[in-house]
Amino acid sequence: MSFLDLYVVLLRATITSFAGLASLPAIQDALVLHRHVLTEAQLNEAVVITRSTPGAVGLYVVSVGYFVSGVSGAVAGWLALVTPAVMIVPLLHYAGRRLHHPRLQNLLKMVVVSSAALLFAAAFPLAKDALTGWFTYALAAIGLLLMFVTKIDIFWIILGSAILSVGMSVLAAS
């Protein structure tokens, strides 16, 4: 599969979706079912890899690209990932001049509050996957408490959580 061909297929998927993994059905349809250049197992691995690494969830298209065409495929995946992002520039150019307009302020307020509610909703399926026992519940609760009452960087809280989990795993194994 050529670089351009793969880029166009992945771009079609990323530019018609509005969340990290929302492009997955389109990619599955194009690359697994129709072109047979990717397997279901590889697609699942791509998702697992991205969930296991820091950064945006949508990065799984880089992994998909690599499975299809090696390093050049990964580059095509990265390009398909970043291309839609530039669409914000003309929007900002237009809206930035009207930043103080009351109607735009109202619009922004509604979108931001709705986004916050949807983010809160997104925590539930994430919790279902991630909180599998008393220890993980404790990690999440302590993390939340530290984020609200201290000024410790989130990075250190997450790192501490990972280290505690490794420690617990070693203790359990011994």
Partner: peptide, 21 residues
């Protein structure tokens, strides 16, 4: 070890999501 580290980090990510909201 890698799996345990990921489990810990992802558990904390739930808290991060709530706080970000």
């Amino acid at each position: 070890i890698v799996q345990a580290a990921i489990r810990g980090a992802v558990a904390c990510a739930v808290a991060v999501t709530v706080r970000t909201a």
